[in-house]
């Protein structure tokens, strides 16, 4: 077998060089890394924002007026609880009349006074649970009317609704159906 000549070896060396692609022959990929960075950042921002703005809604009906309201018809033997929020605390009214201070029976005075400068929501929950448990006929009742002095902030009203929603142990429902009363 004849050997390759010098010229043939040179030609083989030249021809066997791997071909370099010209810039216009390459894939023509766009540099999308900055674009990706922006997209990922926006995505994380949007997801984080969604996570912190969880909202909820409390269902209610038009407020009950002084003479006529939309409060659902309640049977005679019902608690008919009304919570009045005043600047000094909560005044509760039930079937028997005004609930006495300390949630002890019927009597005049503010049912639950402020503790220091703060409304005592825990005591309100205790008192509402106690009133509900005072008669087996009240067990199914879930309606409460809330009224407040004109200057009471909406946030306090919502706190009262929260306090009246569940029993003190947080398990059973208390008064979940809320209507508003017009303050005089």
């Amino acid at each position: 077998m004849a050997k390759l000549s010098v010229a043939q070896r040179g030609k083989i060396r030249r021809l066997s060089q791997p071909k370099e692609l010209a810039p216009d022959e390459e894939g023509g990929e766009l540099n999308i890394v900055p674009f990706l960075d922006i997209i990922v950042n926006i995505l994380i921002f949007v997801l984080a924002t969604v996570a912190v703005t969880f909202t909820s809604t409390i269902e209610t009906n038009p407020p009950a007026g002084k003479s006529a309201g939309v409060r659902s018809a309640v049977p005679q033997d019902s608690l008919n609880l009304t919570v009045l929020i005043v600047n000094e605390g909560f005044s509760l009214k039930a079937q028997g009349g005004n609930v006495a201070p300390g949630c002890l029976g019927v009597g005049s005075g503010l049912s639950i006074s402020k503790r220091g400068n703060q409304y005592d929501y825990a005591e309100l929950t205790q008192c509402a649970a106690k009133l509900k448990a005072s008669n087996p006929a009240y067990a199914e009742e879930n309606q409460v009317q809330i009224s407040a002095n004109p200057g009471i902030a909406y946030e306090i009203v919502i706190n009262v609704i929260d306090a009246l929603r569940k029993t003190p142990d947080g398990r059973g429902p208390l008064f979940e159906n809320v209507t508003f009363g017009v303050s005089k």
């Binding site: 407040a148 004109p150 902030a153 946030e155 017009v182 303050s183």
Partner: peptide
Amino acid sequence: DGTTPYRLLIEVMFTLG
């Protein structure tokens, strides 16, 4: 808003009703 006075809240609800 959380600081809305109860009176305004009732006025809005009454107007809605």
